[in-house]
Design a binder for these strands. Structure first.
Lengths: 122, 122
DNA sequence: TGAACGTATGAATAGTTATTCAGATGAGCG
DNA sequence: CGCTCATCTGAATAACTATTCATACGTTCA
């Protein structure tokens, strides 16, 4: 089993395959962007910092849920926090993620949604 | 609870917030990219079509696992299949996903990995 | 100081997703 | 035909992720 058909292409692709650690990191970032609520939070932050309660309001989350989500994003340094008294102001810190968001949103807004359906032969 | 601090910004952000269906779709796409194995498959396909066994070989997956992953990607029309006899050749079909991949990989390859760690105050 | 507030946390539950295995399908070939 | 091969599938388990609730923390202000 696992016999190779086009050995040359397989070797070439193996060459170009990013290191496991890079792939894991990339998968991680995409994973953080794969949730509607986190997406809302990040979209809200595209134009500048907001406090937790405004983020919760904008994204329709409870403050607890918003806080949990922001914690995750903060742990991966996608957002950063500024504290002022009892308020916490979050901002989008990762320019790479900003680019991914911009690109992704630009496309979904102009594109028909492709729902999971069958192809040639499912 | 959920009191708004900066009502104007909240209203402005609400205006710009994409529709729920667009966010769901975007989150979905990111979700499909959030797995190392699927990422490997897609990277392998960046340069052209490959059959399942070569994809499995390149990405270190069992053929069954590769097939399951490809099925998912196919269901979302991210890849498409061409069948020739008993072989199945997959290709990357979604140019939007190709862009996201290119962007993401370009960055991870030049960037220090930011592992989940604490920020100012975790 | 103590009450109210914004935020953060932990633990529990519920829900989703990946992985594996056993077997099915359908094409080619002797 | 009947065997082998490439691929696909379904079902089961295991692993992970989200959501909620109750509560804790530190700040502000009376």
């Amino acid at each position: 089993m696992v016999r190779v058909v086009d050995a040359d292409r397989v070797a070439a692709v193996r060459e170009r395959m990013p290191a496991a650690v890079d792939l894991a990191d990339t998968a991680d970032v995409f994973g953080l962007l794969s949730d509607q609520n986190r997406l809302r939070l990040l979209v809200a932050l595209l134009e500048g910092e907001l406090c937790v309660c405004d983020l919760a309001a904008v994204s329709g989350l409870s403050e607890s849920a918003a806080s949990h989500a922001l914690r995750l994003l903060r742990a991966h340094r996608i957002v950063a926090v500024r504290r002022a008294g009892r308020m916490a102001y979050y901002r989008l810190e990762d320019p790479h993620v900003r680019m991914l968001l911009d690109l992704a949103l630009a496309h979904t807004e102009h594109t028909e949604i492709l729902h999971p359906e069958r192809d040639g032969g499912l």
